[in-house]
């Protein structure tokens, strides 16, 4: 479904991705963790080309990501993304946030798009907020709206870029619950997150990154109980103590 082959990327003189290779199969759920600045966000942002990689190859659904605008558009239609800071459109109501892309990108009739939006709002359990503006919602509600917005494009793949890092602790669970449900429905997912409980519950594969490199890739049971790499162990020791 997604394949990265020896992807390299530099910001100025600093290398932020070093020979990153990763394969994600259809329906697989991958959790990426690592210290800040490890290149986790950059990696998943390369997958829908919010960032451009400079070396290596990225395939999404069999299409290679190149400078081809048509293919970029095709890939972005298939890949949904949820951001750390929600990035809802503040000038639009919740419902309009959800229907914007289906109407203009998928060319869906407005009625149909609205029905679809209400369906997903119910899935994330806030159908009653449809008429409000994002600024009137709590952080947890906003992030659930953002998830619903991505789902309205009926993507094959969902990318989560630290979706709970900007939330107050009491709101994290409501967002994770929605993500767990989504995982159980069989969606292909790549999540950058520090929520190790969530990782244990849903991940098929754990990826640990540090300083732009993939250090370790392992199924969660082995990843948490018997990490092979010293850096992974150190990181887990720090993060699990909290």
């Amino acid at each position: 479904m997604i394949e990265l082959r020896r992807v390299n990327k530099w910001f100025g003189g600093r290398q932020v991705l070093k020979d990153v290779s990763l394969t994600v199969a259809r329906g697989e759920r991958v959790v990426v963790c690592g210290p800040s600045g490890a290149g986790k966000s950059t990696m998943i942002r390369c997958i829908n080309r919010l960032e451009e990689h400079q070396q290596g190859e990225i395939f999404v659904d069999g299409i290679e990501l190149t400078g081809d605008v048509k293919q970029i558009e095709a890939i972005r239609r298939e890949v949904g993304m949820v951001f750390q800071h929600f990035n809802l459109f503040p000038h639009l109501t919740v419902l309009d946030n959800l229907t914007l892309a289906p109407i203009w990108v998928r060319r869906m009739p407005r009625r149909e798009a609205e029905d679809l939006a209400m369906l997903y709002l119910e899935r994330v359990r806030i159908p009653e907020q449809a008429g409000k503006y994002p600024s009137q919602l709590s952080g947890g509600e906003q992030q659930r709206v953002a998830i619903a917005r991505a789902l309205c494009m009926k993507p094959q793949i969902m990318l989560f870029d630290e979706p709970t890092s900007a939330l107050d602790p009491e709101m994290i669970k409501e967002v994770l619950d929605v993500m767990v449900e989504l995982a159980q429905s069989g969606m292909t997912m790549i999540c950058v997150t520090h929520e190790m409980g969530f990782a244990r519950e849903v991940a098929d594969l754990m990826v640990f990154m540090d300083q732009g490199e993939v250090i370790e890739t392992a199924p969660p049971d082995r990843f948490f109980t018997a990490p092979r790499n010293e850096r992974t162990r150190l990181f887990l020791g720090r993060i699990l103590r909290q």
Binding site: N48, R49, L50, E73, R76, R77, V79, G80, M81, F83, H85, N87, L88, F89, L100, A101, W104, V105, R149, A150, M153
Partner: peptide, 21 residues
């Protein structure tokens, strides 16, 4: 910048992104 990125991630092209978001 997040507004541009969110619009990109949803697959909106330049014209739609500019005019709608």
């Amino acid at each position: 910048r997040g507004q541009y990125e969110a619009a990109d991630a949803l697959g909106l092209g330049y014209l739609h992104k500019t005019a709608l978001v």
